Simulated assay, not measured.
Amino acid sequence: MAFWILFCASVVAVSVVPGPSTLIAFTHGARFGWCKALATAAGNAFASLLQASAASAGLGLLLTESASVLLATKYLGAAYLVYLGVRMWRSKADEIEAGAGTTAAPRVSGRLFRDGFLVAVSNPKAILFFTALFPQFLGTPGSESGRMVLMTVSVGVIAFMVAAVYAGLGARIRAMSVTQTAMRRLQRATGGLFVFAGIGLAASRA
């Protein structure tokens, strides 16, 4: 199982680097608390599972070989990041207080799951990364399908755990009972970072 340990270490090393997926988990943890932000982590994990599965199915090669498909995917992802950034910039810091009741909990969790999923799935570079990474851990006769399943599932688990950790860090800020003004500034800063990330993704050559 040495290959699996090395594979997981490689995925963790990339996943822990701050980016849109970790940033949305952190922000949701700060706004909604760790338990609710686990829905964000679940959305991120589901998107990562789909991306890893797409890479194993050959979609990564299609993106590499088809410039038009890659551009379309990239621009759609960039547009969503900008939209999310603007939405977070305009949202009120006390929105969660209005939805804190038990009847609103499923609706809030669904929105957090959706945001976590869409932020993660909006980055086509993840599929390209998995397309390049997976072959490095294949090649043993008779075991490739088993390894592929193990690696794909591991990607989802790692994505969930990393997002959950970032959500926990955000929840620490919530536990400090910061003022609404401070929370508003955090939301605006996060929204600005998402807009910047969307513009950066659209402008990138890869």
Rank of each mutant, 00 (worst) to 15 (best):
Q136T: 02
A93Q: 01
W89H: 09
V195G: 10
C35A: 15
I173W: 13
L71Q: 15
V162L: 00
W4R: 03
D115G: 02
S68P: 09
L50C: 01
G146K: 00
T140E: 14
R185K: 10
S177H: 11
T102S: 07
T131H: 06
T102G: 09
G192N: 15
A67V: 13
V119K: 09
S177P: 08
K92Y: 06
H28I: 01
A57T: 09
A163I: 00
A98G: 11
W4M: 06
I5H: 07
V16N: 07
R87A: 15
R205D: 13
R184M: 15
L63A: 06
V86K: 04
V157A: 00
T27C: 10
L62Y: 13
A93W: 00
F117M: 11
S154E: 02
F137Q: 03
A55F: 06
M161I: 10
V178D: 07
S145E: 13
Q136Y: 03
M183W: 12
G191L: 09
A182F: 13
R107W: 14
L76I: 13
F137V: 07
A78I: 01
W89M: 14
L6N: 15
R87L: 15
L62A: 15
R31D: 03
V108Q: 05
F129Y: 14
G156V: 00
L84D: 09
G139I: 02
T152L: 03
Q51I: 03
L128T: 07
A57N: 11
G116W: 11
M148W: 03
G142K: 08
F196A: 06
P20K: 06
S122H: 05
R147I: 00
S145Y: 04
M148E: 02
M183H: 10
T27G: 14
S109D: 11
S122G: 01
Y166R: 14
A182G: 10
A105M: 14
S66V: 10
C35M: 14
A104T: 10
N44D: 13
R31S: 10
E144T: 05
W89R: 05
I173S: 12
I5M: 11
L150T: 03
Q187Y: 14
P20G: 06
I158Q: 01
I24N: 02
V69I: 12
G142Y: 03
I173G: 10
A42C: 09
F7D: 05
G19T: 05
T190A: 12
T140I: 11
T152S: 00
A206D: 15
L71I: 14
L118I: 15
G77F: 12
S109R: 15
S109E: 15
G29E: 01
S122Q: 04
S145A: 10
S56I: 08
V162Q: 00
L63S: 03
V108D: 12
L133F: 00
A55P: 03
A105H: 12
M176T: 05
G58N: 03
D115H: 08
R172W: 09
Y166N: 05
L23Q: 12
L70V: 11
A72M: 15
L38A: 01
R174L: 02
V162G: 04
G168T: 04
L61G: 15
V119T: 10
G77A: 02
S143T: 12
